[in-house]
Amino acid sequence: MAVLVVNQAPDWNQELYQATLDRAIPDPSNPPAGLIAHFAAPGAEGGWQVIDVWESEDALRRFLEGAVMPAAKELGAPPFDTKVVEIYNSLIP
């Protein structure tokens, strides 16, 4: 089942996000298996947020553990909070 993923990172900024993304997905034309959509923006109360839709939580976990966490660790990035919920409905015009 598809999942909605919200990552909140109060101590991140656009530059740290971009550096992490460049390492985790070096070729944006070849996104990770299972990724449906990816959005990133400043947080409403500061920091940075990333909102994704994944085909499954397993696909998300493989990407986080195999690419994002190693990249963030390499950059010395502070931790971020991840919330995952199953998608009930979607509308894509």
Results as ranks from 00 to 15, higher is better:
Val53His: 03
Tyr88Gly: 13
Gly66Lys: 10
Glu65Met: 10
Asp52Thr: 07
Ala9Trp: 01
Ser29Asp: 15
Pro79Asn: 11
Gly47Trp: 00
Gln14Ala: 15
Glu74Cys: 01
Pro28Phe: 06
Glu45Cys: 02
Gly34Asn: 05
Ala44Ser: 13
Gly47Val: 01
Pro78Asn: 08
Ala72Gln: 00
Lys83Tyr: 06
Leu16Ala: 00
Asn7Ile: 15
Gly34Gln: 03
Gln8Thr: 11
Gln18Glu: 14
Pro28Ala: 07
Ala72Asn: 02
Gln18Tyr: 05
Gly66Leu: 08
Asn89Ser: 11
Phe39Ala: 12
Ala71Thr: 02
Phe39Val: 11
Leu75Trp: 07
Arg62Gln: 13
Asp52Asn: 09
Leu75Phe: 06
Ser90Met: 11
Ala33Met: 10
Gly47Ser: 07
Glu15Arg: 05
Val53Cys: 06
Asn30Ser: 12
Val3Pro: 01
Ala40Pro: 03
Gly66Asn: 11
Pro31Thr: 12
Gln14Glu: 15
Leu91Ile: 13
Ala41His: 12
Ala44Gly: 09
Val3Lys: 05
Ala19Gly: 08
Ala44Asp: 12
Gln14Trp: 11
Asp27Cys: 09
Asp27Ile: 14
Asn7Gly: 09
Ala71Tyr: 02
Pro42Ser: 14
Asp11Cys: 04
Ser29His: 14
Ala72Ser: 11
Glu86Gln: 12
Asp81Pro: 03
Ile87Arg: 07
Asp27His: 09
Asp58Gln: 14
Arg62His: 09
Ala19Met: 12
Phe80Gly: 04
Val85Ser: 05
Ala2Glu: 10
Leu75Ala: 00
Val84Ile: 15
Glu86Ser: 14
Thr20Lys: 01
Met1Glu: 10
Met69Pro: 01
Asp81His: 14
Leu60Tyr: 11
Ala41Gly: 12
Pro26Val: 07
Val53Tyr: 04
Thr20Val: 13
Glu15Tyr: 00
Pro70Ala: 08
Phe39Thr: 08
Ala77Tyr: 04
Ala41Cys: 13
Phe39Arg: 07
Phe63Pro: 06
Ala77His: 00
Gly47Glu: 01
Trp48Leu: 04
Pro28Ile: 10
Ala40Ile: 04
Leu64Thr: 13
Leu35Cys: 01
Asp52Phe: 00
Ser56Ile: 04
Asn89Pro: 03
Arg61Glu: 13
Val6Met: 10
Ala41Ser: 13
Val5Lys: 02
Tyr17Glu: 04
Asn13Glu: 06
Thr20Glu: 04
Ile87Glu: 06
Gly47Pro: 01
Ile36Cys: 01
Val5Phe: 04
Ala59Gly: 05
Gly66Thr: 11
Ala33Ser: 14
Lys83Met: 08
Glu55Lys: 12
Pro93Lys: 08
Gly43Tyr: 00
Pro79Ala: 14
Gly76Pro: 08
His38Phe: 14
Arg62Phe: 07
Pro10Val: 04
Ile87Phe: 04
Gln8Arg: 09
Val85Asp: 00
Asp52Leu: 02
Pro93Ala: 13
Leu91Cys: 13
Glu15Thr: 10
Val50Pro: 00
Pro10Thr: 03
Pro93His: 10
Lys83Thr: 14
Tyr88Ala: 15
Leu16Pro: 00
Glu57Pro: 06
Val5Glu: 09
Gly66Val: 09
Gln18Pro: 05
Asn30Ala: 12
Tyr17Phe: 15
Met69Glu: 12
Val3Ala: 01
Arg62Asn: 10
Ile51Cys: 08
Met69Ile: 14
Val5Asn: 04
Pro31Asp: 07
Gln8Cys: 00
